[in-house]
Simulated scan of single mutants.
Amino acid sequence: MEIKRTVFIITSVAILSGCAVNKPTEQSSSYAGSKMIESEESRPNQRRAYENDSENTRRIVIYDASIKIVVKIPDSTNVKLAETALKYDGYVQTLGNKKSILRVKSDKLQSAIADISSLGKVKDKTISGNDVTDQFVDYQIRLDNARNARKRYLELLARAETVEAALKVEKELERLNGDIDSLEGKITQLKHLSEYSTITVLMEEKVKPGILGYIGIGLYESVKWIFVRN
Rank of each mutant, 00 (worst) to 15 (best):
D89S: 05
I69Q: 02
I73S: 09
I60Y: 01
S66R: 12
I62M: 10
P74L: 06
D64E: 04
E51T: 09
Q110D: 13
K123M: 11
I101N: 05
G96W: 00
I67K: 03
S111Q: 15
L95N: 12
A82N: 06
A49G: 04
I69G: 02
A49R: 13
G120Q: 06
V61K: 09
L109H: 09
R58Y: 15
D53H: 11
N56A: 01
S106R: 06
K108G: 04
S54F: 12
T84A: 12
N52Q: 07
S106C: 01
Y91N: 11
T94N: 14
K68R: 15
L109M: 07
S100H: 05
A49P: 08
T77Y: 03
L95F: 11
Y50D: 00
A65Q: 07
I127A: 10
V104G: 02
R58Q: 15
D115A: 03
T126P: 01
I127L: 13
L81V: 06
Y88H: 15
S111D: 09
A65N: 07
Q93T: 15
A49T: 10
N78G: 13
I60T: 08
G90S: 10
D64R: 15
Y63H: 07
S54I: 14
S118M: 07
E83P: 07
R103Q: 14
A85K: 05
Y91M: 11
A65E: 03
K123I: 08
K87H: 11
L102V: 13
K123S: 06
K68I: 08
L86W: 07
D115P: 04
